[in-house]
Computed example of a mutant assay.
Amino acid sequence: MNKYFKWLTFFTGLLLSSAIALADENLGAGDLVRILVYGNPDLTLETRIDASGYISYPLIGQVEIGGHTAKDAESKITTALRQGGFIKQPNVNVFLLESRSKLTSIIGKVNKPGRYPVTHKTTLLDMIAEAGGVAAGGSSLVTVISGSDKKTFDLSRLVNENSNQQIPLLNGGETVYVPTNEVVVGGEVNQPGKYSISDNIRSIADFIVSAGGTNANAADTILYTTSSGGAEVTKSIDIAALMSNNPQAGQNAMIVKPGDKIYVPKAPMVYIYGEVQRPGSYRIEKNMTLMQALAQGGGPSVRGTQRGIKVYRTDDKGSVSKITPALTEMVRPNDVLYVEESLF
């Protein structure tokens, strides 16, 4: 009867523990373990591994099991019990009840971001499913950070390939980041807003087109902001080259990443007043001269003269100076051209 009771106690402990015996995974600080010694219920212990990797076990005191597998921990406790003369042939089992040393953080556009225990080798797809899946607006491009190593995986390709061997495994300690799937397009476009990356919309040119193209006030360049090495980097890109079909231009093939920003600034303007046919503000075209700017305003009126053209120019400090430049000089942004009245 006593022997039956011991067996019953032993297997009942196994069933209640819901633990997983790990043969090839290391235990770590913060892990909750259960230790059972067959035939010795007084030696059953449920404890956490301390920050130094040790536990305090009855009869034998401090035992280092952090950094060792459950099988190694069983061997160390067995040896200590036998060499200490406490039990001649101890049968020790170590089970992991809760892993804190193997938590993987899931952040970004998932439905349940947080830290999740990895008690056995888990695929990236399984871990994202554990976090409730990718949320609305989330990208299929997922970044996995493990120490100094950073890799990006396309979830849609992992699913379509249907090959478990190519799906990355998580061992714990990683950070999984699911970014937004959207790219912001703003400035002088016809339909500014957020647009999602898809198989058909991946390049800068694609997003400019999706936003309805540039409007009449748009500059000749766009500002493209992306992240590189954890810092934002902004590049100025010529729109003509961007939309060119010439493969040598290369700009139209630039592929955006989730979270990137595309901004089309307003074109620089020149202001023409005085004795001109059509006074007003005009867009400065590339390499425009003062003569060309004056032509935009219809040229001098019958009372005006080209000899009486003055330019009010603002410098970087905000100071305004009045100059009489040659008509072949390039116009600068925010120049004010004033055509004086002819005296004769």
Rank of each mutant, 00 (worst) to 15 (best):
106 I>Q: 07
94 V>A: 04
121 K>T: 11
118 V>D: 14
133 G>A: 03
94 V>M: 08
134 V>C: 03
99 S>C: 13
82 R>Q: 15
132 G>Q: 11
104 T>A: 07
103 L>A: 07
86 F>Y: 13
90 P>R: 07
114 G>V: 12
101 S>H: 12
126 D>H: 11
111 N>T: 02
91 N>F: 08
129 A>S: 14
94 V>Q: 06
127 M>Y: 09
133 G>R: 01
118 V>Q: 13
125 L>C: 06
82 R>L: 05
81 L>Q: 15
80 A>L: 14
124 L>A: 11
117 P>L: 01
85 G>V: 09
120 H>Q: 15
99 S>Q: 12
127 M>W: 07
102 K>M: 09
79 T>H: 01
97 L>Q: 04
88 K>H: 04
115 R>H: 06
112 K>F: 07
93 N>V: 06
109 K>D: 01
83 Q>F: 00
107 I>F: 06
88 K>V: 11
86 F>V: 07
122 T>C: 04
113 P>R: 10
76 K>W: 00
135 A>T: 02
91 N>D: 13
117 P>N: 00
122 T>N: 08
101 S>T: 15
101 S>C: 15
130 E>K: 15
81 L>E: 00
78 T>L: 06
85 G>P: 05
87 I>Q: 13
93 N>M: 10
93 N>H: 07
78 T>V: 02
84 G>D: 05
116 Y>D: 12
107 I>E: 13
115 R>K: 05
75 S>C: 05
82 R>D: 02
131 A>M: 13
94 V>L: 11
104 T>C: 09
113 P>V: 04
97 L>W: 01
76 K>H: 01
134 V>D: 03
121 K>S: 13
123 T>N: 12
126 D>G: 08
76 K>S: 03
107 I>M: 10
96 L>Q: 06
95 F>D: 07
105 S>A: 11
100 R>P: 04
92 V>I: 10
111 N>D: 04
100 R>Y: 09
106 I>W: 07
111 N>G: 02
134 V>L: 03
77 I>C: 00
134 V>M: 01
131 A>Q: 09
109 K>M: 11
102 K>T: 04
109 K>L: 05
75 S>P: 04
96 L>P: 02
124 L>Q: 10
75 S>M: 03
102 K>A: 15
116 Y>N: 12
110 V>C: 14
107 I>N: 05
92 V>Y: 12
81 L>S: 14
102 K>L: 11
84 G>M: 00
115 R>Q: 06
76 K>C: 00
80 A>H: 04
86 F>C: 02
132 G>E: 12
77 I>A: 00
102 K>Q: 15
92 V>Q: 05
126 D>T: 14
